[in-house]
Each structure stands twice: as C-alpha cells, then as structure tokens.
Design a protein around this nucleic acid. Sequence first.
DNA 1: TTGTATGCGTTATCAT
DNA 2: ATGATAACGCATACAA
Lengths: 346, 346
Amino acid sequence: MTTMKEIAERTGVSISTVSLVLNKRDAGRVKPQVAAKVRETATQLGYRPNPLARSLRTSKTSILGFVSDEIATTPYAGRLILGAQDAARALGYMILTVNTNGEADLEEHEISTLKQYGVDGFIYARMFNQRTTVPESLLSLPTVLLDGTDDTGRVPSIIPDEEAIGYEATRHLLDAGCRNIAYVGASDRAYAADSGRRAGYRRALREAGLETDAGLEVGTTFNQPALDVVGDLFDARHPDGFFCFNDARAWYVYESAARRGLTVGRDISVVGVDNHRIFAETLAPRLTTMDLPHYEMGYWATLKLVSLIERRTPRIDLPHTTSPLPSLDDHDARIRCTLIRKESVV
Amino acid sequence: MTTMKEIAERTGVSISTVSLVLNKRDAGRVKPQVAAKVRETATQLGYRPNPLARSLRTSKTSILGFVSDEIATTPYAGRLILGAQDAARALGYMILTVNTNGEADLEEHEISTLKQYGVDGFIYARMFNQRTTVPESLLSLPTVLLDGTDDTGRVPSIIPDEEAIGYEATRHLLDAGCRNIAYVGASDRAYAADSGRRAGYRRALREAGLETDAGLEVGTTFNQPALDVVGDLFDARHPDGFFCFNDARAWYVYESAARRGLTVGRDISVVGVDNHRIFAETLAPRLTTMDLPHYEMGYWATLKLVSLIERRTPRIDLPHTTSPLPSLDDHDARIRCTLIRKESVV
DNA sequence: TTGTATGCGTTATCAT
DNA sequence: ATGATAACGCATACAA
C-alpha cells in the first residue's frame, strides 16, 4: 500500500501538496506542472487512499450499515443486498451487513457495533413489505427503511407499489380474456402487502366493469389447509383466472387444478408474484409470474441514503432495469413491479 | 463516542495507563485500584474502542472480506452469509460483503477495495460446490474457500461431504424398503457435487448387496427436457425410490409420478437435497428433503479464517446445529449433511 | 507504577 | 505556490 508520504518523497514535494492535488483542491494553488507530476507518480505507484486514516480525520467512513432481520430465510434478500451493493460501489461506498435474527437486543448490539465502525448511515431492511417500527437508536444517523412500511413516518422508505402490482396482475388476466377472476392472498396479517394487492385487484375489476365479490377472494396459510381453501374456491366458483399473492399460493392453484383435470395455461390462467424463483425452473412456461423489483429497491435505498448523507442528489444510472424509477425526493418511494416473465396466459 | 482521552481526564491518569488497563496489559504494571477505577469509568461512560483508529496503529482491522460471485441468484447464499456473520460476531469481527456478478475485472477491483479497507483475510465463497480457481490477488492474505473445490489446493476449503450425502440419502431409501433406486442428477458439469453424490449412492447400493445400474442413473437440465428424461426413467425402469440431486429434480419426479397416477410417499419414495426451501411450504410432508448445512459451512469458514489470521484456534461454540463438526486443523473440512426433515418415506 | 513521546495516513490551518 | 505542523484515537517503546 503506497502512501502520500512516498509520493511526496518521490516527487520532491511535501505531503500537503500531494494531498491538495490528489483531492483536487489545487485550483490555482499548486503549479500545474507540479500537480501533473504528483498525479503521474500517484497512478504510477498505484496509489489508493487509506479510507481508515481518512475517516479518522474526517469522521466520515464511506461505509453504510445494512441491518436486516432475516437475511437467511428468504431467497430474494440477496437481490435487495445486491442492488444496494451495486449502488454503493457506484457511489464509492462499502456496505457492512449485519443481521439480527429477529432478536431485539442483538439488534441493538449490532447497531451500536456499526456505529463504532463509524458508518455514515443505515439501511434498515425488512424482507417483505410489513409494518415496521424503526429502532430509536438508528435515528441519530441518516436512515432509510427498505421493503417495510414505517409506523411513525419518521424515515423515508422504499417499498413496492403493491396496489399497482395487484392492478397490473389483474389487468393481465383481464386482457387474456378472463371474466371470473379470483384473488388468492395471504391470511397472515404480517403480510402488509396483501391489502394493497387486493385493492389493486379490485380496482382493475371495477374499471373493467366487473363486480367485486368477496367470495372470489381467499386468504391461505400453507400446506393442506391452503389446498383445502383453494380447492373449495375451485368447486364453489369455478374461476377462469387467478391472481396469486406469491408463488407458494400459485402452487396450490396449480395443484388444485391438476386434481380437477384442469391445465394451467389452457383451461385457466394464473398470475403469481414470484418470491422463490423455483417456478422459473419447474412450472414455467405454464405460469405467468411477476418479479418483485428487489434489485431496484436495494439500489434506490442506497441512492436515497447517500443523498441524505451528502445532502445532494447523486448522479443516477441504474443498470439492467426495466422498472420505472421513483423520484429521489419523495419521502416514500414506491417502486412498481413491471417485469412479467413467461407469457403463457391463455 | 467516548474516547480514552476522556476516560483519562475523568480518572486523573494518562492515556497510556487507560490503554494498558483496557487492553488487559496491566499485570503488575498498573496499581489494581487505579485499574479498577479506570475500568469503572470506562463502563460508566459506555466506552467502546474505535476500531478504525486502533487499526491505523496495528494494521489489524478485525474486518473480514467476503467475496462471492452470485449472492443474488441462489436462495441459500443467505445462510452461508448468516453463518459466517454469526461466527464473526462471536469472534469480534465484522464482515464486509462484496459481490462480483461473475465478472473477473470487477472481482479484482472489489478485492483491491477490500484490501484498501484493510481486511485481515478473505472468505472466497461459491454458491454451490464447484471447481474453483482462487484469484491470485487473494493469496497475499489468509484466505478460505467456501463451498468450492480449489483447483490448486493452495487454500483450505469448507465443503459439504457430497459422498456422505449421497450415501445417507440412499441408505434412507434402502431403510424404507426400496430396492430399485434411481439417481436423478444434474447433467450440467458445473455441478461438481453431482459425482460425489452419485458415488455415495453407488456405495450405499453395493453395501446393501444391490447391483449398480447405469440405466437407473440419469442427469437432467430443466423444464420439459427434464420431464422427458424422468418420464422415460419411470416407464423403462419403474423405480420404487428416487434420490434427487436437488429439489428442482425432485419436482420432476413428483410431477412425472402424478401423471402416472402414482403418489409420492405411498407408491414411491423420494429423497431430495433441498436448495430452494419452497417444498417446505408446498410438497411437504410428502417428500423427504435433506438440508445442506449452509449455515454451518459459513460458520466454519469464518472460524477457520480467524484461526489462520490469529495463528491460534479460537474457542468454538456453534449454536443451533446438528451437523457433526469437522476439525479446524484439516486443510479441507468436509461437513456432513445430516438434517432430514419431514419423514414421510413409505 | 505511571507518564511522555512518537507514529499510523490523512486533512486542514497557518506560515512562509 | 508550497511546506511545516497539529490533530483524529489508539498502542507502545522508553523514560522517569
């Protein structure tokens, strides 16, 4: 690791001068020839500043703390983190990831450890959109809530536009010709996204001139009880289209259909929000799935956080994305889910 | 953030004394009463050392670099990271995670950034056990390969004991009474685990006095081609038991069985290695799955790395685990997969 | 037994 | 236009 001192010695100037040049603070303060020489030897020696020493002086580490409760249990957590890290790299930041295993005291401990390491701000991430109380201990630093809905509205948050998701999914089924469309949701109230998606589903039906009907809306848990609920829905209402809260629910529809001799993609249409990605390998192309824009959400959370930290809006270029981008100035940025794979709805 | 300086002032001693006491270097060097007073005010003020300042002095950051290629694409990556982080926390380390998106030059850039931040060592992680060449640039620091097999054998690695997995899975089927057991593997040669599991499968058959038979071993890709291969296997050999490389493969068996009027758990037995965890929510309890010990692997990788860094074997206490633990002294630690959920084999 | 001095790599103030 | 110098928080050899 080459230091400013070495550059100073090789160039025959003082460390101060090197610092000035390398921090681009030489506007009419250092002779251009000297500056050029400094820069030259710097690149020649492969100089990279020591962020730790710098932060000792500036109390600014360019490190972001990423606090999440259950990194391990959901597969798409990775995309959240990936997006956050890509944005961080683009903006010159690193991310220190920490998980709390859902334990409050461990969470406090990890947060204070992160503060010790001098993080410049926090991303507080949930793994699905749920009502969340941001820990008091975070509020002393810039904080962004990711994939969660803040109870108190004190911190900005990045969440999927659940209503739009429900609307788009249902429109997709309507466009495919379905007229008797069911909603298979989550009965567990922890899934805050359920009500938004259901609302979007209803709006799409109303706009199409169809009646909403509570009998076509069910909520399930898992396994046999879920199969029972969906089976009853099949037998009582004979829907021709299903909007499923996630792919676990879609599977129950698929299974119930099979047991009745119906084929998804021919006799009935199914759109599911994909959480697990297993269907990309198995059921496709018989099922229409919508990807939640986790990558984009992670990316935008970092962008938002950095704009808070630096009190300026960073230049934006989000790679590989199809989602419409929210405004960084919104307190709560809702990201729409637009990616629909495997067009196979009848 | 309270500093040593503040403690020194409050206690009426010098910073050096405070440093000595707080680093437990006061063995007959500082008067016990003074030491006690220092410790008292330290806890009273809630002193936590500044790791960045310390590392500037010691060039030892207590930060580990975690380099992985595709954090996002596999769901169990999270468990690898979780295990690594839990171990890191227990040992007083933090983990700086970085992902390379499979791009070699990005990888080099991230590694050098990690070095800038002064990481004490690297965990180079793959997301499934595959042949891997560890980048040259890592070798200047202690490095452990996680869930990958090193080509050159230069760095220690933590991998699943694939042969044991294949053996245990097959034994499980044998114990359930199966006598005509098929292996549904992965045809893509990138899956290095395939050959080990197949070998374990064969050993279990031989030990049970059964013939191995290439006609009972297939390899699949995905979707319709996979369904075709498994369907042919059903029709040609009528197996009564299936050991499946992963749960995607298990699904093809499940689907093929259903199409032939056979029920898993009654007419045939299936053991699959669980990668995606979706089956816990859907197919269970009809399918027997084996969990890969990703959490433990992450944990052990960190433990191994820290023992390399500190040149001593850290105290060990792995929480919440059922896997037999490998010796830290082994160059390549193989971790057995022992967790079998949902006992439902006929 | 305790304190002083120095340096880690950087930034920033103030002379020159 | 450039260079000493101090300071950030901590660790340590050396002095007292």
